[in-house]
Every structure is written in C-alpha cells, then in structure tokens.
Amino acid sequence: MHHNYIDRYSDGDTIIHSIDARVKILSTLLFTVVVVGLPRYSIVPLIWFMIGPFTIFTLAKIPFKFVLRRILIASPFIITLAVCYSFIDSDTRQVNFGPWQMQIKGSILICANIIIKFILTMSALTALTATTPFSSLLYGLEKMYVPRLLILQLAVLYRYIFLLIDVSGRYLRSYSARSLRYLGFRREATIRSAMIGSILISSLDISERVNLAMIARGFDGKIRTLSQEKIRGKDLLFATIVCVYLVVLKAILW
C-alpha cells in the first residue's frame, strides 16, 4: 500500500523545496502571527495575503485541489463555531463593495473574517509542509532548539506511521473479506479492539527490535545529529521577500 497522500509533494525539486526549513518555518510562523493579528472586521484586504501562499503553491507545483482538500479536512470545527457565532446578535455595519452597499451584522463579518483567516493560515501551513520533507522539518526544528529527544522521537514516529497504517489496513481488509453482516455493536467493537490490541502488541515488539538495531549501531542514549544545512543566499532572499511582503501589506492596507 502506498501512502502518497501523506507526503506526495514534499520530495519535489523546485526552488521552494530547496529553501532551508528554518526559514520556511519562521516565515510560516510570521505569516500566521500577522494574519491572526489582523482586524476582526476586515475581509477584502485579507485576499492580498493569499498571494503569498498562492505564489508558493504555483512555484512548487502543488495542485490547488490538493490544498483545498487539506483545508476542507481541517475545517469542520472552526466553521461550525464561526457559523454558530454568526447567529449571535450584534450591531449591524455598513458594508460597501463596488456599487453595492449593504447592512451586515457585525457577527457575520467576524465569522467571515475568521474563516478567511483560517484559510490563509492553513494555506501557509500546507505550503510549509507540502514543500518540506518531514526530515528537513525536524532538522529545522532542531536548529531552533527543540529538544533532541523530541526530534528523534518524532523521526521514529513519522517513519513507522506508514508501516503501522499498513498493518491496520491489512487487518481491516482481511476482516472485511470475512465479515458478511453487522454483528451488533458489542461484538463488532470487541473485534476491533482485538485488532487495536494486536497492533499495539506488534508495535511494542517492533520497538524492541528497533531498540536492538539502535544498540547494535552504538546508540547509548545520547542523541547525536548531523546538521549540515547552512543558510545560503537564496534562503536569506526568501526570508527578506516574505518579510517585505508582510510588512508592506500590513502598512498599506492598515
């Protein structure tokens, strides 16, 4: 089974992919902070912030459909909240858009504002993760003083996601091949719990063998990493562009 949906585009070779992970992480963080901090009622100016992630998706050859799907998957909670919020009474506001003028409830404006901001920051995060292999992300985080214990941990986690998802996929397929009807919640749940239990046991077994493999290669609990990535000219250029873009937008629009 292939899990291309998880990291389909992170192995690309475009200019965006080659930018240092640290620069990308910090840029995403800066973008998110700026966007989240924007005024609560504004809507139209926000679209200018879309240009940034949009440019990155275009340059990195990431299909917009993929981005859209990612954002949709992450959206239910915030959309429910925002929509609920829009029913709350608040004072109305005059909105002018082109030749049209209308009175809109402030809470609806805020709701729209939050959803757009959510799309923006999610796009930025997708832009980061879709153009950076997970191992580079970890390198970046390590350089940014995230503890090495957590880094190595995350590395192992990411490595074995694919393996264990395969295992549960196999269990589910072989179960559905033999189950002919719904057996009632209690019975079905027990069967599924047994699947989870045996995946847990095999996870524990794998971790024991991985532990042996680590010891065999001289691992003594001290985590040593090889970081060869250096900030180059193009990374600085990228960082400068991002900063200038954000500062200029913020200065012009507000």
Partner: peptide, 28 residues
C-alpha cells in the same frame, strides 16, 4: 528512565495511535 530503550518505544507508540485511528467503530 528514558534512556535508549524507551526512545523508539515512544515514537512507535505515536505511530500506533495513527494506525489505531484507522480502525473505525460503528456507533450503535
């Protein structure tokens, strides 16, 4: 406590959570 042998354990247990979340329980 978290010396060499627990390190892969934690990572792989994290991966296990993803695998376990693949298995859906139909609600009664």
């Amino acid at each position: 406590a978290i010396y060499a042998e627990k390190l892969p354990l934690m990572g792989i247990l994290g991966a296990f959570v993803f695998a376990a979340q693949m298995i859906n329980f139909p609600l009664p």
